[in-house]
Design a protein around this nucleic acid. Structure first.
Lengths: 115, 115
DNA sequence: CCGTATCCTCTACGATACTG
DNA sequence: CAGTATCGTAGAGGATACGG
């Protein structure tokens, strides 16, 4: 077994911890878009077809709470809010890249399940 | 942006494809347990505290449908069924390892969110 | 950002068929 | 009766969509 297991019978594996952070209908997409650089809320929404504003905001806040994203509020009127990946969130980069690489191979391997 | 993006406005990113495969309350744990080697159904259930037989079977079959696992049925009575990671499923190994590594760091970094 | 409606995931409980 | 693998169904609860 690859290293990383913990004692027998434990309740929560490290792998589940990570999944709980990036879990959510749109979190993968959000993180991917932001890996380009900071984006404004409306800009993000337009770049993710199908997402509702409600879900975008909710997921954004959850990722901020997890320490992955940072919210920059210019405090101006009209409001100008940017979200960017935090320094800590950068450590997720290799994980996301790994997920993406496998996903592309999977789409080629089983086009029917590209979902 | 790290490579792997597809055209603007696309519906499904590679990263979401991967997440859709390993998504599910217990799939991470199941894959992790099986990375040790083949296991019987009841053996798996005992190794995952809290899972119900129903969910185990359901997730197991979903992973088989995705091509990640293989089901070996001895065809005997009483039934003896083993599940193992398919050759194709092995390609997920590095991804799972990456998820696990980050999860361990995250649990140290933010114990309150170890979930 | 909220209230409401809907959908879907997971859980709980039970049932099946057969053997030791 | 206990154990093995699987399925059916119903219900609670959470996730998501829609409209204001």
């Amino acid at each position: 077994m690859p290293d990383g297991g913990i004692e027998e019978g434990s309740q929560r594996l490290p792998i589940d911890t990570t999944l709980s952070v990036i879990d959510g209908r749109w979190k993968g997409t959000i993180l991917w878009r932001l890996s380009d650089g900071p984006m404004r809320t409306a800009e993000l929404r337009r770049s993710i077809p199908g997402i509702t504003e409600r879900m975008l905001i909710r997921h954004l806040h959850e990722l901020v709470d997890a320490g992955i994203l940072v919210r920059h509020d210019a405090g101006t009127v009209p409001p100008c809010v940017h979200y960017s990946i935090s320094e800590y969130g950068q450590t997720l980069g290799p994980v996301l890249q790994s997920l993406c690489d496998w996903g592309r191979k999977h789409m080629e391997h089983r086009p029917s399940q590209a979902s």
